[in-house]
């Protein structure tokens, strides 16, 4: 066989392969390109501000998620809709009201981030609504860490990028605030699952 023919036989499959790779694919997907399910999946979810509230009499913790309808000019950042820069006090009140719906007395419910004197005076004034919440545009996880003061838990709240980070932050906050080991913990998503 002549050398040029031998070379042509060797090179031809390579050329054919390259040509097929260079050929534009047919992207006509018919109706498949208008999947509503895909649209819904990629749509950014509403900002959610999540509170943890506590019934100190029953020692029960509630998660209260507050979703905000985006304003007409809301712009997503990294796929997240922005949360209000200032959360109105009535939103925190609504979180407390969620707990109070299940309580004997209104005074049974407090925010789950508690100050150092809370175990002596377990009242709403010794808890903080601002510290008991996380916003979905800041962190995806909210966590609680507590120590047990007898009949009820004394807790603090923190936000984090994942459950472990959020629990660690809550735990550090609890242990620094109360000078106690805080082994009772939980973490959950800021946005509703």
């Amino acid at each position: 066989m002549r050398p040029w023919l031998r070379l042509a036989i060797l090179v031809l499959p390579l050329l054919a392969s390259a040509a097929s790779r260079g050929t534009p694919l047919d992207f006509n997907l018919g109706d498949f390109d208008s999947s509503h399910a895909l649209d819904d999946a990629t749509k950014p979810r509403d900002c959610t501000v999540t509170y943890l509230v506590e019934n100190v009499v029953t020692n029960e913790t509630f998660v209260a998620r507050m979703q905000f309808t985006p304003g007409p000019h809301a712009i997503t950042l990294k796929g997240l809709l922005p949360c209000p820069a200032l959360v109105p006090p009535r939103v925190a009140e609504a979180a407390l009201a969620g707990c109070r719906d299940h309580a004997d007395k209104k005074s049974d419910c407090v925010f789950a981030d508690m100050s150092r004197g809370f175990h002596d005076a377990p009242v709403i004034a010794n808890s903080s609504g601002n510290a008991a919440r996380c916003a979905s545009d800041q962190a995806p996880q909210i966590a609680i860490a507590c120590w047990n003061a007898g009949n009820f838990d004394v807790c603090n709240v923190a936000c984090g990028a994942d459950p472990d980070a959020a629990i660690l932050a809550a735990r550090n906050r609890c242990e620094a605030t109360h000078q106690k080991a805080c082994p009772i913990t939980a973490a959950l998503p800021v946005q509703a699952p």
Binding site: Q67, P84, A94, G98, P183, A192
Partner: peptide, 18 residues
């Protein structure tokens, strides 16, 4: 370590101004 149970309240939908 113990895991604290969390009870889920019904989520609320606020308008954009809260």
């Amino acid at each position: 370590d113990t895991t604290k149970p969390i009870l889920t309240l019904p989520p609320l939908q606020w308008d954009d101004r809260g």
